[in-house]
């Protein structure tokens, strides 16, 4: 009698485990995997709204570069923001002359063939963080982030 009760308990126990082990009640279907590395750069602002005199020349040139060259070439700039975004943002925050100088300086740093990881913090997995506010010559805007620190992604 006791042995039969034990067998019954064991059966109930095994049945409940088997019943709960199957959690995926949805029929498996074919999936389309996407192997593209997600881009970490901010979305392009392709608008042509004119907010200042500099926008008349700047926006068409930058939009054309983004559309015909940069988006085709892919996310290759080692820095965040990318050099074109840096140019755009620096001209917006300062003026066309200062922004252009900042861009030439940024391009020089971009072509630096020597070690960079000891100078810049990281942004995401593949970029160095080099924001515009460091180079506007306004000391109050400069916030030091130690080299090698991981910076949180800006949404």
């Amino acid at each position: 009698m006791i042995i039969n009760k034990l067998k019954l308990l064991l059966l109930i126990f095994l049945f409940s485990i088997i019943a709960h082990s199957q959690t995926d009640w949805v029929r498996w279907e074919k999936s389309d995997p996407d192997y593209k590395i997600p881009s970490e750069t901010i979305k392009r602002q392709y608008d042509l709204s004119i907010q200042s005199i500099g926008d008349v020349v700047l926006k068409p040139v930058i939009n054309a570069y983004w559309f015909f060259i940069s988006d085709v070439d892919g996310d290759n700039c080692p820095f965040y923001p990318s050099c074109s975004s840096f140019l755009f943002t620096s001209i917006k925050q300062t003026n066309i002359f200062q922004g252009t100088l900042m861009f030439f300086d940024r391009f020089t740093r971009d072509t630096n063939i020597f070690e960079r990881s000891s100078h810049y913090p990281f942004y995401g997995k593949h970029h160095f963080y080099d924001p515009v506010y460091l180079y506007t010559l306004d000391e109050d805007l400069i916030k030091i982030i130690p080299a090698g620190t991981q910076v949180k992604k800006i949404k």
Partner: peptide, 24 residues
């Protein structure tokens, strides 16, 4: 000329960043 002027600007900015880093 652009890279030359940019290099001068960048040096001034670099000195400023250096000084802020000293304080930090």
């Amino acid at each position: 000329a652009g890279f030359y002027a940019g290099n001068i600007y960048g040096s001034v900015a670099s000195a400023q960043i250096f000084n802020v880093k000293i304080n930090f």
